[in-house]
Amino acid sequence: MSITTMTLRVPDDLAPAIRHAAQHAGMSVNAYVVRAARHAATRDAAHQLAALGLGQDLAGEGDAL
């Protein structure tokens, strides 16, 4: 698996909440943000399929991840 490095700019008032949530989940901030991005991408793809009338049973799939 290849890895791409990205710079993420987060509002100052949100950063502590992300750090706390990652720590609470026992994850690094990087792993936590990657998991959240993967969750959102999966959910968005399922919603797009549902909007096209495809994969109706997948519409909420990202929500369960």
Rank of each mutant, 00 (worst) to 15 (best):
I3M: 13
I3L: 11
T4L: 10
T4K: 06
T5Q: 15
T5L: 15
M6G: 01
M6K: 04
L8K: 01
L8W: 06
R9F: 12
R9G: 07
R9T: 15
V10C: 12
P11G: 12
P11I: 13
D12K: 13
D13L: 04
L14E: 09
L14N: 08
L14H: 05
P16A: 00
R19D: 03
H20E: 14
A22T: 12
A22I: 11
Q23L: 02
H24M: 06
A25T: 05
M27V: 04
M27H: 07
V29W: 07
N30D: 12
N30A: 05
A31E: 13
A31G: 07
A31M: 08
A31Q: 09
Y32A: 10
Y32N: 11
Y32P: 04
Y32C: 03
V33T: 01
V33H: 01
V34K: 09
A36K: 00
A37W: 01
R38P: 14
H39T: 08
H39V: 03
H39F: 05
A40H: 10
A40I: 04
A41R: 12
A41Y: 03
A41W: 14
T42H: 14
R43Y: 05
D44Y: 02
D44R: 03
D44G: 05
A46M: 09
A46R: 01
H47P: 05
L49F: 09
A51M: 15
L52G: 13
L52S: 13
L54F: 09
L54V: 11
L54M: 14
L54Q: 14
D57V: 07
D57Y: 10
D57S: 11
L58D: 13
A59P: 04
G60F: 06
A64V: 00
L65H: 14
